[in-house]
């Protein structure tokens, strides 16, 4: 992650419900400068002390790449705890991807070095709510959330739910896959699944069409041979046309059964493909907000 700005804030606070005199090291890793964050922290948490040091490089990468994210930086956390003499480390990371902003918050216990709480927010066009969001997150760890911050978040997030429109929907994906197998999956951004569905359905469709064509030609040949069989009184021709007609009849029955079986399979696959597109279709992010640490789960420094 590109770290444009790294703020280190040593926050000494006095917590009523969490732990008396617990101290926090707050690390902000932002890919863009966030104007007013320092002032906001100082003003919003006036009973706390902040120290900023931008000389410290980024300490944490993407913890999701580790098998056990909670314990991936235990030694670094312990070292930081010793260095800054703090009980907890709060890491705030902000990353922009197009018009979306990802806000991640990690709370580490310096005594164990483990990750004890985490939250992730992924929102579209939410730059004007970042300062407020960080205040909420820091405050939630200290149980100092102010109602006005929550109101501001709601004002920004949910101006009018009726106005929320989604560019891509599960139904849109399902209908697309009903028209062209794999289109709905591609529309949802799953190109591997789209390719698989398209290949399977294309193969089944080709097999069905081939079987149907064979059925059709066998049926026509059968009818033609029956016509010739009925029209002749020559015993050799009768036998020849009958033999040919019987072969054509067996073929047209076999290809008919095969075509129907393939049609059923194709249809089932087609509908399944559409349902799959709907089930795994694009949906609004449901994990945009995780409520902060509740009192019952607060760590005991």
């Amino acid at each position: 992650m590109k770290s444009v700005s790294l703020f280190i804030a040593l926050l000494s606070c006095h917590l009523a419900a969490f732990e008396q005199n617990a101290t926090y090291l707050v690390l902000n890793h932002f890919d863009k400068p966030l104007v007013g964050i320092n002032e906001s922290l100082i003003n919003n948490f006036s009973n706390s002390t902040f120290n900023f040091d931008s000389s410290v490089d980024a300490l944490f990468g993407d913890i999701d790449k580790y098998n056990n994210p909670a314990s991936s930086y235990m030694n670094d956390i312990k070292d930081l705890g010793d260095t800054y003499n703090v009980n907890f480390i709060l890491l705030n990371r902000i990353e922009h991807r197009g018009d979306r902003v990802m806000i991640e918050g990690l709370l580490f216990n310096t005594r164990s070095g483990g990750l004890i709480h985490r939250r992730k927010i992924n929102l579209k066009n939410y730059d004007n709510g970042l300062v407020n969001e960080l205040s909420l997150w820091v405050a939630s760890t200290m149980n100092q959330i102010q109602k006005q911050w929550e109101n501001e978040r709601e004002a920004l997030m949910f101006l009018d739910s009726e106005d929320i429109t989604y560019d891509k929907t599960p139904m849109g994906a399902a209908l697309r896959s009903l028209v062209v197998p794999g289109w709905g999956q591609a529309y949802s951004g799953n190109s591997l699944s789209a390719g698989l569905w398209a290949t399977i359905q294309l193969s089944l469709s080709v097999a069905f069409i081939s079987s149907y064509n064979n059925y059709d030609s066998s049926a026509k040949s059968f009818l033609e041979n029956v016509k010739l069989y009925d029209a002749t009184d020559d015993e050799k021709e009768v036998e020849m046309y009958r033999t040919s007609a019987e072969k054509d009849w067996n073929d047209h029955v076999g290809y008919s059964k095969l075509a129907i079986a393939l049609a059923g399979t194709t249809l089932t696959g087609w509908v399944s493909n559409s349902i799959h597109a709907w089930v795994f279709g694009p949906r609004p992010f449901t994990n945009i907000y995780q409520k902060g640490i509740s009192q019952s789960t607060y760590p005991k420094g």
Binding site: Y212, Y215, A219, F222, L223, V226, Y229, D230, T232, D233, D234, E235, V238, E239, R242, A245, E246, W249, H252, V253, S256, A259, I260, A263, L267, V271
Partner: peptide, 24 residues
Amino acid sequence: ISLFVVTVFGSCTIYDKIFDNPVD
């Protein structure tokens, strides 16, 4: 689904195998 089933099943007619030439 109904349209598809009717189309497929309706198209795949199984003809009667009747051979009744007196010389056969």
